[in-house]
């Protein structure tokens, strides 16, 4: 009985609300890594133009693209942020739902750091060692895999400290985790000859070996909240954490980034591409919405202006690592002309 009345109540409200459907602010969804940058631009845009402040949701890269590709119309978002490139399957999904004109704009880079408390010694590690410490199965001789037996870092390599392996990192839904697996683990995995050879013969198995993170307690899923990871590291000097560069930058007094392949995770090293574990960040624009929702073109102009994403822009204060000027120019032109620049 009460269900029925609820449905009637809901129907009444729907009728009342449907009049107010037209949308006059931009809606952005997507990656939690791009969220701090996207929101900073949205706020500046809202405060310095006549347009309303865009609404930014943090849904994760995959979740964002799913919403973005669901269709055209005011109930679907206008842009989505991603901490990885759009996948082929997602482009197909977009096309299937009528979202054909999509502009990709790369906004800069983000480094993924492995950090520990300042109370402990700084770690120097290679990607191969990271792979051997954190992979689910590790190679034991040619063509043979065994479940990861390493308990301490010293087990992995005598040069590393004699401390239990405990790495706090994001869960599988996170783009940061995907990128960490792809850049750090796979980067190390490739160093092993016969696994590298497998990439050509059995790509699926190669990926399974290189991207699987151990589940026996060595890697602890600490949720999407990076602030929490930093606090846990402070409390436990033996643990390491995996998170984005911006959190290292903001908490440099509490945690230190480990040197990976002898490279320090600094702003300069990430911008130069010397630091091996860094990735590109993107946002995607739905062209069909550009003239329907006010302010999209102006928002792109704001985002791609040098005062935002330039070397001295306000996004660098938030931890974004800018692209070289030439690359910025390319994407700025793409943003202006709204080119369909996704090549699969």
């Amino acid at each position: 009985m009460n269900r029925k009345s609820l449905v009637f109540g809901a129907l009444g409200l729907v009728l009342a609300a449907s009049a107010a459907q037209a949308r006059d602010q931009i809606r952005i969804v997507g990656s939690s890594t791009v969220y701090p940058f996207s929101t900073a631009v949205a706020e500046t845009f809202g405060k310095t133009t006549k347009f309303k402040t865009p609404v930014v949701e943090s849904t994760g890269s995959g979740g964002g693209l799913k919403l973005f590709c669901a269709g055209i119309g005011t109930k679907h978002p206008d842009m989505t942020n991603a901490s990885r490139r759009i996948k082929k399957s997602e482009v197909e999904r977009c096309n299937k739902n009528g979202v054909t004109g999509v502009t990709e704009i790369k906004i800069g880079y983000d480094g993924i750091v492995m950090a520990n408390s300042k109370k402990a010694d700084r770690m120097k590690i290679t990607r191969k060692q990271i792979f051997l410490a954190l992979a689910k199965d590790i190679p034991a001789g040619e063509g043979k895999l065994i479940p990861n037996p390493h308990k301490t870092w010293k087990n992995v390599d005598p040069s590393l400290p004699d401390v239990k392996i405990e790495v706090l990192g994001p869960p599988p839904t996170s783009g940061t985790r995907d990128a960490f697996a792809e850049l750090a683990l796979e980067g190390g995995c490739k160093k092993i000859g016969w696994i590298k050879a497998m990439k050509k013969t059995d790509k699926k198995k190669y990926k399974a070996i290189c991207h699987s993170i151990r589940e026996d307690g060595g890697y602890v899923e600490a949720g999407e909240n990076d602030v929490l990871i930093v606090r846990k590291l402070e409390a436990n000097p033996n643990a390491f954490g995996v998170f984005g560069y911006s959190f290292l930058d903001q908490n440099a007094d509490k945690v230190q980034g480990s040197l990976i392949d002898n490279q320090d995770p600094t702003f300069e090293n990430i911008a130069d591409g010397k630091y091996p574990v860094s990735r590109s960040l993107y946002f995607y624009v739905k062209q069909a919405h550009v003239n329907k929702i006010p302010g999209i073109a102006e928002f792109i102009t704001e985002f791609t202006s040098d005062k935002a994403w330039g070397d001295d822009g306000y996004l660098t204060d938030k931890g974004l690592i800018p692209m070289p000027a030439a690359e910025r120019n390319n994407f700025r032109t793409d943003g202006k002309s709204l080119a369909s620049n996704i090549i699969m």
């Binding site: 609820l6 809901a10 409200l13 449907s18 809606r27 109930k75």
Partner: peptide, 25 residues
């Protein structure tokens, strides 16, 4: 129900209130 079927706006207190009403009932 509210967003995908009835097409109510996302992020709106209207939908939030309707969802929480179910919970409070």
């Amino acid at each position: 129900v509210y967003i995908n079927f009835f097409g109510l706006p996302r992020s709106a207190p209207l939908v939030g209130g309707m969802v929480l009403a179910l919970m409070t009932l």
